Simulated assay, not measured.
Amino acid sequence: MPASILFSGHMIDKPDRAEPRFPPELVWVVRQRIHTAIASFVNSIPRDRILGFASGACGGDILFHEECRACGIDTVIVLPFPPEVFIQSSVELTKSDQGHWGRRFRKLWRETPEARREVMDLPHGDDAYARCNERLIGRARAHGQMHLIALWDGKRGGGHGGTADMVANADHEGTLDVFSPQSLKSRL
């Protein structure tokens, strides 16, 4: 039976974020934790039967795509806006892109077959992210049994379409693996 790994997670904190949620110094331990979550599927389901689903924001989404591909799992990227607009709103959040998120996003986008890239071309706003989440859920569910991995601090976000909404709306029929960046601090 085919399986879907649906991912939703926090973006890297902007330098001026008042309450840290996913500070850049946690990228390596978050990457390792995402890898562990993905690897559990590779051990029980043939790789060619698994497909990963996520958007493409800096932080969790990009790490998820990179780790799926490192494990030999193809992924689907769904964006609410055209890539260059999305990069401005959700990838390159500061003038100094220290994580090279823009370069990494563009590489993932280029290497993803056209049939596995979707641009919804929605008007900008929180509703666009909520609709993007709905599309990701629908595509993941259509592929096979859906498992959700969420990099989430357990708090409501600033608007619709964030990780809290994905966790609440995904109604997964498989496993649910939720962890926060802050919970991984001890692994530094």
Rank of each mutant, 00 (worst) to 15 (best):
M1L: 09
M1S: 13
S4M: 06
S8A: 12
G9L: 01
G9P: 03
G9A: 03
M11D: 04
I12P: 00
I12C: 03
K14N: 12
P15D: 10
E19Q: 13
P20N: 12
P20D: 09
R21D: 07
F22H: 04
F22R: 03
F22N: 05
P23I: 11
P23G: 11
E25R: 13
E25A: 09
E25Y: 15
V27I: 15
V27N: 08
V29M: 12
V29S: 09
V29G: 05
V29K: 14
R31E: 14
Q32R: 15
Q32C: 11
R33T: 07
I38M: 06
S40P: 00
S40I: 03
N43T: 11
S44K: 13
S44N: 06
I45K: 09
R49K: 15
R49I: 08
I50S: 04
L51H: 02
F53S: 02
A54P: 05
C58D: 00
C58Q: 07
C58S: 11
G59W: 03
I62S: 04
I62G: 01
L63A: 04
F64R: 00
H65G: 02
E66V: 07
R69T: 07
R69Y: 05
R69V: 02
A70M: 08
I73F: 02
D74M: 03
T75P: 04
V76T: 05
I77Y: 00
V78Q: 04
P80A: 10
E84D: 14
V85I: 15
I87D: 12
S90H: 14
E92I: 15
L93S: 07
S96T: 15
Q98P: 08
Q98C: 12
G99H: 12
G99R: 13
G102Q: 14
R103L: 13
R104I: 07
R104P: 09
F105V: 08
F105P: 08
W109D: 05
W109N: 01
T112D: 01
T112L: 01
T112R: 00
T112H: 00
P113F: 02
P113T: 09
A115Q: 13
R116I: 02
E118M: 12
E118A: 09
E118K: 06
E118S: 07
V119N: 08
L122G: 03
H124F: 11
G125M: 09
D126P: 10
A130F: 10
N133S: 08
E134S: 10
R135E: 06
L136M: 10
I137S: 05
G138Y: 02
A142S: 14
A142I: 05
H143K: 06
G144E: 06
G144A: 10
Q145L: 14
L148K: 02
L148P: 02
I149L: 04
L151H: 11
W152G: 07
W152C: 05
K155A: 15
R156H: 10
R156T: 10
G161F: 08
G161S: 12
T163Q: 02
D165E: 15
V167H: 01
H172K: 00
E173Y: 07
T175D: 09
F179K: 02
K185T: 15
S186H: 15
S186R: 13
R187S: 07
L188N: 09
L188W: 06
